[in-house]
Write a protein that binds this DNA or RNA. Structure first.
Lengths: 232, 232
DNA sequence: CGCTTATTTGAAGCCCCTCAAGCAATGTGG
DNA sequence: CCACATTGCTTGAGGGGCTTCAAATAAGCG
């Protein structure tokens, strides 16, 4: 249920990369123009192919960006959490959203309508500068990934996916990082069947790199995975 | 050999997407700040990992963006031709260039130093708007490709690569589109060995979809390749 | 306890890679 | 103009990695 965003910015807002360098009053007016939305896990923000009408910023929770390929398989592109901007690529070009955004963990987001955000960027040039940097980083990331998928073995891809998950949505514990995901989730992130994922995880369990349970795993030795991910 | 760019903008400059909406005087001052460079085929604009100091715009010719993966294999990301912007992602973030830019066909480019281009964008907001759109489109493209490589067969990947080549650097002829490339080029673009590429092309020759010769091919039936590319 | 869902494991097969030859087109020097 | 090297391409045989299909096991949940 959309409602006006709170006018008193929470302290972390000023640290969000999209708002870097924005003065307190400017930040206030940008936030005043936003709408706050709360969604439960499983709900959908927008679908692939929808007209890109709004730009979102994740305040809390986790949102999954996924894509359905021509052959019908689902591919998870990225998990977005606090501070991440969703929709920037599509909104600035008036393309339809190229991905589906669905909520993984109950999330709060703020959003702006597309024309409104253009006006805000005109009023606050730092905002446009930051948007440019943000989109640039996103591109950088995908270019890097395109390079990675090439010639990588299944094990390397899974190692990278697990490390990315651990970084983006992992919980630090005494003896490792706990990550919640199913074998199917990893399969969707890597484009590998969950049979192969299972075999790889079984192998890692034998080598005591991880402890893998039902719908979760504990990464015991992230460094070893890092070595695996670029071939050692 | 760098030298000042000509002050009288050639007519097509005003149609370049980076300069859309820019007034004639604004365009003139932006071009006045640029430096023109001419390079022969085989020369290199910058290397992957170099500090991103300049932003380039291709005036004529073809520039190849390629990446060397961790395992040492070269991967061609994209061919850039007239109107395309090179380096925008890295320059706006002060990252090192993520790719190597080398000249495929004798090229003329104009370029700006990074701080200078920021000033130009401040003076001419349309320029920043266009940059934002340009980077967005680039991201869109790579996201789409990430989705495509997934689960695609070698034949589908090659079909897509050939179609992209035909669009970006093909010459229309009476009975098809002529494309200049070696099997190795296609291999670098798709991440497939040139043995497999050769087998696929031989098959296409048998089915009369293409005529393939040494260092070139004639695409007789682009539509059939399009069908192949998303699995039919 | 039974039902559903997540995971494991095995066996067969296919696609693509690797390695090894050989061929065909294009130069190059005598 | 021909021998010969070079470069690009083709084709075959063998093998490995991942998928597919089938079945069994384990974990949660009413």
């Amino acid at each position: 249920m959309p409602r006006p965003a709170r006018l008193t910015p929470p302290p972390e807002m000023s640290e969000t990369s999209l708002f870097q360098g924005l003065g307190a009053t400017a930040l206030k007016s940008v936030l005043a123009a936003a709408v706050e939305t709360s969604l439960r896990a499983g709900e959908t923000l927008f679908h692939q192919g929808d007209e890109a009408s709004r730009l979102y910023l994740v305040v809390s929770g986790v949102v999954k960006l996924s894509q359905v390929a021509a052959n019908g398989t689902q591919h998870v592109l990225r998990l977005m959490s606090a501070g991440d901007v969703i929709g920037c690529v599509a909104v600035f070009n008036r393309f339809p959203y190229p991905v589906t955004a669905s909520v993984e963990e109950d999330a709060t987001l703020i959003s702006w309508a597309e024309p409104q955000f253009w006006h805000l960027m005109e009023d606050h040039p730092e905002l446009m500068t930051n948007a440019l940097r943000t989109v640039g980083q996103r591109t950088q990331e995908f270019v890097a990934r395109l390079g990675e998928v090439n010639g990588a073995t299944a094990e390397q891809k899974v190692a990278r996916a697990v490390l990315r998950l651990a970084r983006q949505a992992g919980i630090k514990e005494a003896d490792g990082v706990r990550v919640g995901m199913t074998r199917q989730d990893l399969a969707d992130m890597t484009g590998i069947t969950y049979f192969t994922i299972s075999r790889i995880l079984s192998d890692w369990k034998r080598r005591e790199l991880v402890e893998a349970g039902r719908r979760e795993m504990l990464v015991r030795n992230p460094h070893a995975l890092l070595l695996l991910s670029d071939g050692s």
